[in-house]
Design a protein around this nucleic acid. Structure first.
Length: 579
DNA sequence: TTAGGGTTAG
């Protein structure tokens, strides 16, 4: 078989289809006859592919090549880092070392960032040692990458030490150390480095501007902003973000409207600010007014819908992204929001589609995705799947614990929930309001009244102010146990106005335990709070019937008919899985 | 080297 002339082909390789053909030929014919320079060219040219495919190309090429030349491998590592594939970059770097290949500048100046991103401090430290061992200590790019790594890992002291020891510094090194100080709120140190810099560029100005914005010193930030020799979209974005953090969304919007050229970050900053304060309409307006919608913009809007209890719209937009005409690839961010939308709808079918999508596109699970999936499986009744996912989590944080505790609670696994709650406290993770909702629900399911009361005490210990929903669960718990008077007393002691959920819980309990007197009180409150709901009438009617109060039952029924109520059939929030 | 977005309850 004739071996193709790769050199000639590669000269024409800028076209995607051709590159794919070359790749196919390479797999068939092997790489033995290829020069390392050509392998490198394949990796370089493959930039026009979708990121996930590129990673596959790089992986395949690296795994097939017999040439253990550092040049293409170093390039591949840099490529992976530039495309956010940090885990892969680290795997290849380790592979490279195991094959006895010396790393080069490309690899060493990229890999610290990868170790930082995967939160592996020891990895970065070992790279630091190798830098000295292999004699790269005087390379400014490598040293800057290390200094940035230490500053991102929160070790600003070592970052400064690396900075001090650098024989050669460029503007990037100076900017990196300023950003390090800004990140840790050491504005004075950042300012002092900024003042000493031999020259400044827009990044240096943006970094110090951010320092003031983060410190909430917006007046001084504004002075700096006016003083800057040039301003970019990032400078405007820093101001927008600064005002948002100070709660001044109107002023932020003013800057957003006034900026000469917005970028995706400007849009997502504004959209997420509107999302957080529940102003979905303003977020939508910004989203639909922008004609060129990219992945970031879609992500922001999908998240906005999901966070504001509008899961159908979130999934509609998610579907729109996937349309071939747009072909915007969802990423981890999109998927996390979409999964959250699925759990709000109890739609496990869509959830499973998203899970297969993750497999197809090689999207790695992370804490956000796992937690969203844990919640989804739990809400869709697959509690075992949720528990399994939870146990596989690398880092179990408060959100994951809250999700699984609530999941166990609503699935009748009270004892599991209690065990997990104790485990969480034992790991020194403080509960938040959501965790309390979860554990109270679990106590409620298990009928553990005293534990419920203890929970209210625990809230005090952790500085959590009980909210109306916590009371609603407690009332339900007391009511189910037949402690109706106690439940009523608790409602009377509530520091806020009880909502219909609280009175509804008492009414339900009264109907179970046939308490006419309290039932009437609770029902009256429910009628007042939700005059259009018929469920409360049925409950009260049931109480009358069970207690033999036929006249009252009749009067109530007549009143219902007079007002034209129709009985609303019960509905479940869980959509059954398709057969 | 700077700016931004995702997960729990309500």
């Amino acid at each position: 078989m004739q071996i193709p002339n790769f050199s000639a082909l590669l000269k024409l390789s800028l076209r995607i289809k051709l590159l794919k053909q070359i790749h196919g030929s390479i797999l068939v014919n092997g790489l033995d006859h290829l020069e390392p320079i050509l392998i490198r060219q394949i990796i370089v040219s493959s930039g026009s592919f979708h990121q996930t495919h590129v990673t596959q190309y790089v992986k395949t090429i690296l795994n097939h090549t017999q040439h253990r030349d550092v040049s293409p491998l170093g390039y591949a590592i840099r490529f992976l880092c530039q495309h956010g594939q940090f885990q892969d970059a680290v795997i290849f770097y380790v592979q490279l070392q195991r094959s006895g290949v010396f790393p080069n500048t490309y690899a060493l100046s990229s890999i610290p960032k990868a170790y930082g991103k995967i939160n592996c401090k020891n990895g970065g430290i070992s790279v630091h040692c190798q830098v000295h061992k292999y004699g790269f200590a005087s390379i400014v790019y490598v040293q800057t990458a290390l200094l940035d790594f230490y500053s991102k890992m929160g070790d600003i002291k070592t970052a400064h030490k690396v900075f001090d020891e650098m024989s050669d510094r460029n503007i990037v090194s100076w900017n990196a150390i300023i950003s390090g100080y800004v990140k840790f709120g050491e504005l004075e140190m950042a300012q002092s480095v900024f003042d000493r810099m031999p020259e400044r560029d827009i990044v240096s100005w943006n970094a110090i501007l951010l320092g003031y914005a983060k410190a909430g010193k917006m007046d001084q930030a504004y002075v700096l902003f006016k003083e800057m020799p040039e301003r970019g979209a990032s400078s405007w974005n820093v101001m927008i973000r600064g005002y948002i953090d100070r709660g001044n969304i109107e002023l932020a919007r003013g800057f957003f409207d006034a900026m000469p050229k917005r970028n995706s970050i400007s849009y997502i900053t504004m959209i997420s600010a509107y999302s957080k304060c529940g102003d979905v309409e303003s977020a939508e307006k910004i989203f639909y007014e922008e004609e060129k919608k990219d992945q970031l913009l879609y992500n922001a809007m999908v998240a906005c819908y999901a966070q504001n209890g509008r899961p159908k719209e979130a999934l509609h937009l998610f579907d729109e992204m996937l349309q071939p005409i747009l072909n915007i690839q969802p990423d981890k961010m999109t998927l996390a929001s979409a999964i959250s939308a699925c759990s709000q709808l109890g739609d496990s079918n869509m959830g499973s589609r998203i899970e297969s999508y993750m497999g197809e596109f090689g999207i790695r699970m992370d804490n956000y995705l796992s937690t969203a999936l844990i919640d989804m499986h739990a809400k869709c009744g697959s509690i075992d799947k949720a528990i399994e996912l939870f146990h596989r989590l690398e880092k179990k944080d408060i959100v994951a614990y809250s999700a699984i505790i609530l999941g166990c609670g609503i699935n009748g696994r009270g004892q599991d929930a209690i065990k997990l709650f104790e485990e969480m406290i034992g790991s020194n993770i403080s509960p938040n309001s959501a965790t309390i909702t979860g554990i109270l629900s679990a106590y409620n399911h298990a009928g553990l009244v005293e534990e419920g009361y203890d929970c209210f005490e625990l809230m005090q210990k952790y500085g959590i102010i009980p909210c109306v929903d916590h009371y609603a669960i407690m009332v339900d718990l007391l009511g189910k146990a037949g402690r109706l008077e106690e439940a009523y007393e608790l409602i009377k002691k509530m520091p806020m106005q009880p909502h219909s959920g609280v009175w509804g819980a008492l009414l339900l309990a009264c109907s179970v335990h046939n308490n006419v007197e309290l039932g009437e009180i609770a029902a009256a409150k429910c009628f007042k709070l939700e005059p259009n709901s018929t469920g409360y009438c049925s409950l009260l009617s049931k109480i009358y019937v069970s207690s033999g109060k036929w006249d009252e039952a009749k009067r109530l029924r007549e009143a219902i008919e007079e007002r034209g109520f129709n009985k609303v059939p019960g509905c479940s929030w869980i959509k059954p899985a398709e057969a």
